[in-house]
C-alpha cells in the first residue's frame, strides 16, 4: 500500500536542500516541544490526579524567573529561525544574472510558456539541467500561481504585473507544475510538467521546435504591424522616446519623479501610456490595452530589450 506513496518530495533544484534543511530543523523542534508539553501534561495529570473529592491544588502563584525563561528562550529560537528563513528567501528572490529567461502567461485554465528562442509550449516547460532559469510571469485574467514542488518554488501570477521566480534544476526528469492560487472551475486541471533535460538534449529539442523566429524578432514584427515605429524612431526627432538602449535606464518623468525602465514600466507604457510619461513628451500615445495580448506584450518587451545603443542613428 505504501510503495507508491511518497512521504517526502523529490529534491530537484539547488534551492530544495536549503528549504529542506530548515524544514527538518523545524520538524525536530516541533517534535521536541510537542513531546515535552504532551508528556508533561500527561505525567502531571496522572501524578497529581485528584485522590480525594475535596482536595485542592497547592498554592503556587507563579515565578518571574520561569516566566522570563520561557519568554526569552523561545524568542531567541524564533529569531534564529527568522534569520534562517530570511536568508533562504533572499536567495530565492535574487535570480543569477546568467539565468535563462522564460516568459509565462497564465489564463483560465492553462499555462503558456515562451522561450527566448521563440519556441512556445502549453502546460509543459522544457529546461536544461544545471542552468538557472528565470520565469517572468503574468496573467490574462485572474490570479494564478506557479508552483513546482520538486524545486520548492512558488509565486503568484498576477494580472497587470510581472512577478518572477528562478530555479536551477539539479536532476533530469519530469516534475509537477501546479496552479496554487484558486482560479475557478478547472483550477485543479491547471497543471503541467516541467521537463528537465540534459543540455545537449535540450538544444536538440529547441532546434526541433517550430519557432518562426526568436521572441525579439516576433516583437519587431509586431512593432511594425502596430505602426509603433512611426513615433518611436531610432532618431531623436520622433514623437515618442527613442527606445534604443533604453532598457534598464532610469528616466525622468513629466511632472517630476523617475522610473526605471524595466518589464513592468514598458508594459505600463503600452497599456496605460498616460500614467508615467517621460519628460519632454506629451501624453499623445493611445492605449494598446485589448489590442496587444499578454503574449504580444512580452514579445514587444523582449524586442525593446534587444535594441542597443549602437542601433541609434
Amino acid at each position: 500500500m505504501w510503495s507508491g506513496t511518497p512521504l517526502f518530495p523529490v529534491s530537484a533544484s539547488t534551492m530544495a536542500p536549503r528549504v529542506d534543511a530548515l524544514y527538518f530543523f523545524l520538524v525536530g523542534l516541533t517534535a521536541f516541544f510537542s513531546l515535552l508539553i504532551g508528556s508533561l501534561i500527561v505525567y502531571y495529570a496522572v501524578r497529581f490526579r485528584r485522590r480525594a473529592p475535596d482536595a485542592i491544588g497547592a498554592r503556587i502563584e507563579g515565578g518571574a524567573v520561569l516566566e522570563i525563561t520561557w519568554t526569552v528562550v523561545p524568542l531567541v529560537i524564533v529569531m534564529g529561525i527568522f534569520v534562517w528563513g530570511a536568508s533562504v528567501f533572499f536567495a530565492m528572490s535574487r535570480p543569477p544574472d546568467d539565468a535563462l529567461n522564460v516568459y509565462v502567461v497564465g489564463k483560465q485554465w492553462m499555462w503558456k510558456f515562451q522561450h527566448l528562442s521563440g519556441v512556445r509550449e502549453i502546460n509543459e516547460l522544457h529546461v536544461p539541467v544545471g542552468r538557472p532559469v528565470k520565469l517572468v510571469m503574468t496573467s490574462e485574467d485572474v490570479i494564478h500561481d506557479v508552483f513546482v514542488p520538486g524545486f520548492r518554488v512558488k509565486a503568484d501570477v498576477i494580472p497587470g504585473r510581472y512577478t518572477q521566480i528562478w530555479f536551477e534544476p539539479t536532476r533530469t526528469g519530469r516534475y509537477h507544475l501546479f496552479c496554487a492560487e484558486y482560479c475557478g472551475t478547472r483550477h485543479s486541471g491547471m497543471v503541467g510538467e516541467v521537463i528537465v533535460m540534459e543540455p545537449d538534449e535540450f538544444q536538440a529539442w529547441v532546434a526541433g521546435g517550430r519557432a518562426e523566429g526568436s521572441l525579439a524578432s516576433e516583437g519587431a514584427k509586431l512593432f511594425r504591424d502596430l505602426a509603433c515605429n512611426t513615433c518611436h524612431r531610432p532618431v531623436a526627432q520622433g514623437r515618442g522616446p527613442v527606445l534604443e538602449g533604453l532598457f534598464g535606464r532610469t528616466v525622468t518623468l513629466e511632472g517630476g519623479g523617475t522610473a526605471v525602465v524595466d518589464e513592468a514600466y514598458i508594459r505600463e507604457a503600452i497599456v496605460d501610456p498616460g500614467a508615467r510619461v517621460a519628460q519632454g513628451f506629451r501624453p499623445v500615445m493611445p492605449t494598446y490595452q485589448g489590442i496587444v495580448t499578454e503574449d504580444g506584450l512580452l514579445q514587444l518587451i523582449e524586442y525593446v530589450k534587444s535594441l542597443r545603443d549602437e542601433d541609434r542613428r
Binding site: 496605460d272 501610456p273 498616460g274 500614467a275 510619461v277 501624453p283 500615445m285 493611445p286 492605449t287 490595452q289
Partner: peptide
C-alpha cells in the same frame, strides 16, 4: 475628457 488619464 483627458483621454490619456481616463483609465486611472
Amino acid at each position: 475628457e483627458e483621454e490619456a488619464l481616463s483609465r486611472n
